[in-house]
Design a protein around this nucleic acid. Structure first.
Length: 302
DNA sequence: GTCCAGGTGAGTG
DNA sequence: CACTCACATGGA
């Protein structure tokens, strides 16, 4: 377990901003600080606020060198997000509210293949349902791993001494499964889409590694060749899997925001970092919606 | 039971 | 083009 000081970093905002599906709260310290489990690139990390430190103090389950070599980049901590936020027009009160709410969001550097499959699954599914299906898909490969979490067990409610996890299966592994196995995870009509993506990536027909060098335009074009990948899924894959920060996935939420606050067009000056600004807006819009829902159901019950 | 979810492809005019 | 419509399934 290591101690960290991290600024402009908010675990809950990252976990709930709809960019990753394998970052889940697995317990808490002192009934107060949630501990998050993150499975990425075959590894598993536990991370939380440090109850004995200040606002910016964190605890993480990895070694110092793992943090430096992998997680620092994973959490995109080498960039100052204030420079992204400075693209916001000072008179844009809506965006200001979003950025206040979501301060501490980072655009994670996630695995392109995992993003592609996760966002194919995401279409017409709620975030909790996406999490369930992704998790089941990972368990299909039966590659159970674990980390020693005894230090966390002593500190928390809810965390066992040994934390098990399933890495995200690679393209070859998924390509080797049949449609009944894939379908058993709740992929529904998207089963064929996933199998085609697995085939195209495992055969090299689509080379995700090479695409990291491609322009945004070519990247989207290549991703769109996969049946079941439309502009929204392609944009999510590009933004979250290839860190293309100018790309803005337009789902129902963002369309609503664009119409309501920007008269149907994003300001030209936002374009270079629209993907980042979009993330603040998405988090805010979803949060407001959840509040409304609680209000409504509360009233109905009375 | 009903409604809806970080959409997409196919069909139509 | 712009517009509909079906699509499998689980979570609330």
């Amino acid at each position: 377990m290591i101690h960290l000081t991290l600024k402009d970093f908010d675990l809950t905002a990252i976990a709930e901003s709809g960019q990753c599906f394998r970052m889940t709260s697995v317990g808490n310290i002192n009934e107060k600080y949630p501990v998050y489990k993150i499975v990425a690139s075959g590894k598993c990390l536990l991370i939380s606020r440090d109850p004995e430190g200040g606002q910016d103090s964190y605890l993480a389950s990895c070694t110092e060198s793992e943090w430096e070599d992998y997680y620092k980049h994973y959490f995109d901590l080498t960039t100052d997000y204030e420079s992204y936020r400075s693209y916001a027009d000072p008179s844009d009160e809506f965006l200001k509210s979003c950025m206040d709410y979501g301060t501490g969001i980072r655009i994670l550097n996630q695995d392109p293949w995992e993003m592609l499959i996760s966002f194919i699954i995401s279409q017409r599914k709620s975030v909790p349902a996406i999490r369930t299906t992704v998790e089941k898909l990972c368990a299909l490969a039966e590659e159970e791993c674990f980390i020693d979490s005894s230090e966390w067990h002593a500190l928390t409610h809810g965390i066992p001494e040994k934390t098990t996890y399933y890495p995200f299966p690679d393209a070859e592994t998924l390509a080797g499964l049949d449609d009944r196995e894939i379908g058993s995870t709740g992929t529904g009509y998207r089963t064929g889409y996933i199998m085609e993506a697995a085939r195209k990536v495992s055969t090299g027909e689509i080379d995700l590694k090479a695409l990291s060098e491609a322009s945004d335009e070519v990247l989207l074009e290549e991703l769109l060749k996969i049946h079941g990948v439309g502009i929204k899924v392609a944009s999510c894959t590009a933004l979250f899997g290839f860190h293309r920060l100018s790309l803005c996935p337009e789902d129902v939420w963002m369309k609503r925001v664009k119409e309501q606050f920007y008269r149907g067009t994003w300001p030209e000056s936002y374009k270079p970092v629209l993907g980042v600004l979009q993330q603040y807006m998405f988090y805010y819009a979803r949060l407001e919606h959840e509040k409304d829902k609680i209000k409504r159901t509360g009233r109905e019950k009375q």
